[in-house]
Design a protein around this nucleic acid. Structure first.
Lengths: 105, 105
DNA sequence: ATATTCTACAACCAAATGGTTGTAGATCAG
DNA sequence: CTGATCTACAACCATTTGGTTGTAGAATAT
């Protein structure tokens, strides 16, 4: 995963509307206009949010007739969690190291 | 945690330099200028990154003489992980629900 | 066939972001 | 005391971001 990929992923999470879209489409399917109806902004704005989420692998679009069905994509979430787990591991190592120093000291 | 807080948190993670700073200051202490020496950018740029990380609770600054010592702050990381865990829980509920439907069908 | 719906995308705008240089206050060293 | 170092912050700049309206194509409904 490149830096740019990670940037895209966390950037995608850094917006409340997009986080809400992720929650919704994980629970149920929505068309883009179905999503747009939920928010106090234009269709185009919501469509752009969906594009951002798609590029971050947090959402998948599938054409169905004239609609585009949006569903959650577990891949992006898993990547994000794995990344944060790495940071957590660094913390754990640090805590262990300090404990060792205290033990031998 | 407000939407704005969550925005700040993920936004802070959405930059490779800032992620690198977080890793470094979790392992060891750095002054702001000590950090600045590591990157191909101005002191002011790095100082701003530290401010962003501090506002996101990912880093803590402590004045020591004329230096400002930067250390990792577990709080922000924990918050971020807990948030992603909530999304994961939504996924799990969804998977369970589908399994139930298949079982009774 | 025509009208409607859904989507994509361009063009535009204001605000935020990530960088720069410059200035000034504190602290430390000689 | 003087000079060097460390930090904070202002002002500025280019690019990105999150929003808008408008246009056009594809699929559906009447």
């Amino acid at each position: 995963m490149s830096d740019a990929d990670v940037d895209r992923l966390f950037q995608a999470f850094a917006d409340a509307t997009r986080r809400d879209i992720v929650r919704r489409v994980t629970v149920a399917e929505y068309s883009v206009s179905g999503l747009a109806a939920l928010y106090a902004m234009s269709f185009a704005a919501v469509q752009k949010h969906v594009v951002v989420l798609e590029r971050a692998s947090l959402v998948i679009k599938e054409k169905r007739g004239r609609e585009q069905i949006v569903r959650g994509n577990h891949e992006g979430l898993q990547k994000a969690r794995r990344l944060l787990d790495e940071y957590e591991a660094i913390w754990r190592r640090r805590v262990d190291r300090i404990a060792d120093i205290l033990a031998e000291g």
